[in-house]
Amino acid sequence: MIRFENVSVQYPNGVRALNDISIRVRKGDFVFIVGPTGSGKSTLLKLIYREIVPTSGTVLVDGEDVGTLKPSQVPYLRRKLGIVFQDFKLLPQKNVWENLAFAMRAIGKHPREIRRRVSEVLNLVGLSHRCDAFPHQMSGGEQQRAAIARALVNYPTVLLADEPTGNLDPETSWDIMQLLEQINTHGTTVLVATHDSQIVDRMKKRVIQLESGRVVRDQEEGVYQHTNLTEDLCCGA
């Protein structure tokens, strides 16, 4: 499904974000990507949705080399992916229903299909009753549910979540993770970048741990690792 082969990324400012990474994610997997800030988690996700291209190595999604994709083909890659961010990225002047409809309209879906699918997805994330609320009228958890609904609305095969619980309290974070797990059981591959150790420990999913751009651990049913990584980094440097 998703394969990284000896992938390195060096940003123009000289920072080496990823260093010779090779990983493989199968269809239907649920994977946590963990590590401290700056360890390369976001970079790894950005490679998958082609926000950036690798400096060397290859990134394959569905057997397709993402790094050499023509710009005109990028939109079609992204239609296979649902992306969720820490800051939700909901359009403030549109209500929940319109935010979801916008994502479908943007790729030319039929109004009839939009009506049907938006209701269906809102129902799935438990927001049917809030469909005409504007983002500023909702709690953080509700906003993230709306954002997840939007990510799902175009039937992605992979859901990418970059710190989805970064702005949420532990209780709400847990609810969101349950939702992601539920989505995963429906067959969607889920990749979550997080440094929320409590959640990772509780979920017992596959954990890929990054440190300074390298994979230091790839473990089924892993935990976050209980040592304080940030402190390690500071002292070890």
Partner: peptide, 17 residues
């Protein structure tokens, strides 16, 4: 810019944007 960013992320073609 947020609107445009979201359109890009959900896979809208540049033409459509």
């Amino acid at each position: 810019r947020l609107e445009i960013k979201i359109m890009q992320l959900v896979g809208a073609t540049n033409q459509f944007i």
